[in-house]
Each structure stands twice: as C-alpha cells, then as structure tokens.
Design a protein around this nucleic acid. Structure first.
Lengths: 203, 203
DNA sequence: AAAAGAATTAACCATTTGGTTAAATTATAT
DNA sequence: ATATAATTTAACCAAATGGTTAATTCTTTT
C-alpha cells in the first residue's frame, strides 16, 4: 500500500461522491475538482484519465461491499450469527452510503468486464460462500435448498430495498422520507425474522 | 391515444434500446438516430429534446413494470394465485427485457421527481397492493406481518436477481452465462417455493 | 395540376467536456 | 543557499454533443 498524498485523498473522496451519485457518464471532472477544491488538472496529474479515476473509485466501492459477506462467515460461530452479521453490516453500510448499491449494480451492468481484474487481484473467492451454505445444509443447520438460490435471496433482501430506495419511498411510503428511512433501518431485524424459518433449531 | 407515425415508432423503439442500455447520460442522440436509420434532426422534430424523448421512453418502461403487480391482484382468485402470477409475469418480463430493472432503478434514483408526474396521470395507486396484502393477512390467508415488508420482500426477490444479473453471473456462476440464465428462469418456481410457507393452507 | 403542409435531410452552431501544456509555486535534497 | 524535483495553476485545445436552420422531397388538399 503506497502512501497517498492529501490531495490524492481529497480527489478520491470527491470522486467517490460524484461518481456514486451520478455514475460514470453523468459525472463531470470539473465537478469533482470543485468538490475537492483543487484544480482540474490535478485529477489528471494523479489519475491520468477519467476512466482511471473511476476505476479507483469503483474498486474501493466494490471492496467495501462484496467481501463483507465473506468476512461475516469467517467471524461467525454459526449460521444464525452469520445471517445476523451479514444482514446487519449490509444495512449499516447502505444506510451510511445510500448510493453504493445502485452505483455498483449499474456500473457492473454497463461494463461487466470491470469485475474481471477486480476478482483476479482482489483475491475474492465468491465460491466460498456457496460452499459454506451447502455445508451448513448438509450439517442439518439450514433448510436444504439450492445454496446459490439462498445466497441470491439473502443478497436480494439486503440490497434491493436500498437500490430501490427512491422507488419504495415514493410508491410504498407516499413520499414520506422518515417512514421509509426507519423502515429500512428496521430491516436489520425484519430480514432476519423473514429468513429465520430456514434455520433449523438445535436439539 | 394519438396515432403515432411509423417514424415516431422507430424512434421510440431505438430510443428505448439505447436509453435502457446506456442510461440518460450515456445515451447519444446520434446513436438513437443511427439505430432507427433516420436523420438526427427527426428526433427533435418529433420529441423536441433529449429529455423529452427520454421521458417518453421512461414512462413507457415504468408503465410496463409497476402496474403489473396491481394487474396480478385483479386477475387472481386468491393469494396463492396472486403470488404465482406476479412472480411469473415479472420473471417473464425481465427475461425479455434484461435492462429494464436497472434502468428504472437507476433513473428513479437519479431523478426521483420523474415519478411524480407519472403517478398523477398514470392513475397508479400503490397503496392498493399494501391494502390487499393486509386484508389477506386479516383473513388468515397469509402469515401476519407488516404488509409493506412483505411487498418489499416479494419485489426484492423478483427484481434484484435481474438488476444484479451481471454481478450474479460473474460472482456466483463464475461467468457461466447459460447456468445463470437458466437459474433466473427457474426463479419463477423457486421464488414461489421460497415464499410458500407464508401462505396459510385452507382447512 | 398547383398550392399548401408535413416530413426529411445535410450542413451548421454553440457549448460542454476530457484532456494538455507551459509556466509558476512549493517542497526537498545537496 | 541553490539546484532539483514535485506540485499546482491558468489558459488553451480538439473532439463530441445536443440542438438549429434552411433547403428539399414527399403527401395531401383543392
């Protein structure tokens, strides 16, 4: 890990905000520079091009997001803990960075290739999660089903409400921001309750 | 409903493709014109501005998407049918138009105001769905819970896997397109199976 | 058939945008 | 202190982009 200059950090933070809010195409280099209170040329001095700068931001965002679920496995004693931890940390993360889910989803959707390099260097092994779930099912700790399906369902329940926040806020909460916000906060408990029946009690 | 000229329809179809694939910011008027095999000036002749054209596309996309769930209620005899129908029609729709979910989510996210006018004129009443679910719970047909939560969960399970298709394909299916595709197709059954325990059997 | 109106095109325009450059300023090393 | 290297700035540039216009072709009406 190289030491980053203050300016570089300022740029990255401003770029993170602008890119996650407006996407690669919607973001303007000038706006990033303005938000970082620096000259636009500095962006190119430190990152060469818009795409390179974007890549840095995207990489950081993705690594803040995906590895969390693997971490949840490693730091949990059993499936129950795992589910609680994974759900809780995702809700916390997305409450804090509301634009993260839709940012990752839409940029991955537009340029799936970006994932390739990330996976190779990042050392992220997605298969471990599926194997873990399969294992827990074989051990009789989880209701038997396609582990991939379960994984997708858990992720769906955690991410979608945040990715679709604006939609939900308007269509289900009639535009009431506070209700919607507390609803999302509550999901830390309610997603778990929803998935609880899949956990097989010890006897 | 006014009669649309052939050219207008060509434009709308090309615009639909380009906008849903690349978003408002990423779309180029020239590309839309090229795909419709017409002169770029025609876009402005019929739709005045990029934003107006986008609005037409967005409106059509949204109306293809959201009202479906209300339709499912109206055309179903009971909750079981409703769930089956809603899930099935969403899976069909998104298999056919893979870019639809992420398109709607990201554009609503970027410009939530766009929903306002749509709701007013469209006559879409989101509250009906929540009321329907509440009613079914009161009737003892569905496990009692916050109906909003249930609605969000159903929508999450239906939409997210399509919105996150590229992510899932790469992270869970190791890039195997066919497996991922058939997995998504299978969700018509598997989402229903997943939600089935919430339906209370008649006695 | 001629006039009027609608549809279509090619050329053009102003602005925006990512990116560059050369000079100036600041920090570092000798 | 002074030379050297790193950082920062203002001015500039070429390409791209949404949009316009005036002329042309095609339709419709009378």
């Amino acid at each position: 890990m190289e030491i980053k200059s203050d300016t570089e950090k300022l740029i990255l933070e401003a770029a993170r905000k602008v890119f996650t809010e407006k996407g690669l195409d919607g973001a303007r280099m000038q706006e990033i520079a303005d938000r970082a209170n620096i000259n636009k040329a500095m962006l190119h001095y430190y990152f060469r091009s818009k795409d390179k700068l974007f890549e840095s931001v995207f990489k950081a965002a993705f690594n803040e997001f995906w590895p969390e679920i693997t971490k949840s496995i490693n730091e949990s004693a059993n499936v129950e803990d795992f589910l609680k931890r994974a759900i809780s940390s995702y809700v916390d993360l997305f409450m804090d960075k509301p634009f993260l889910p839709i940012f990752i989803l839409s940029e991955v959707n537009r340029t799936p290739d970006r994932l390739e390099s990330l996976i190779r260097e990042g050392g992220v092994n997605p298969h471990l999660i599926v194997e873990y779930l399969k294992e827990q099912m074989d051990l009789g700790k989880l209701k038997a089903m396609d582990p991939k399906e379960l994984l997708v369902n858990v992720i769906s329940l955690c991410i979608f409400p945040f990715a679709g926040k604006s939609l939900i806020e308007r269509m289900i909460f009639q535009g009431d921001k506070e209700s919607c916000e507390s609803f999302l906060q509550e999901r830390k408990k309610s997603i778990y309750e929803f998935l609880k029946p899949l956990i097989i009690a010890n006897n």
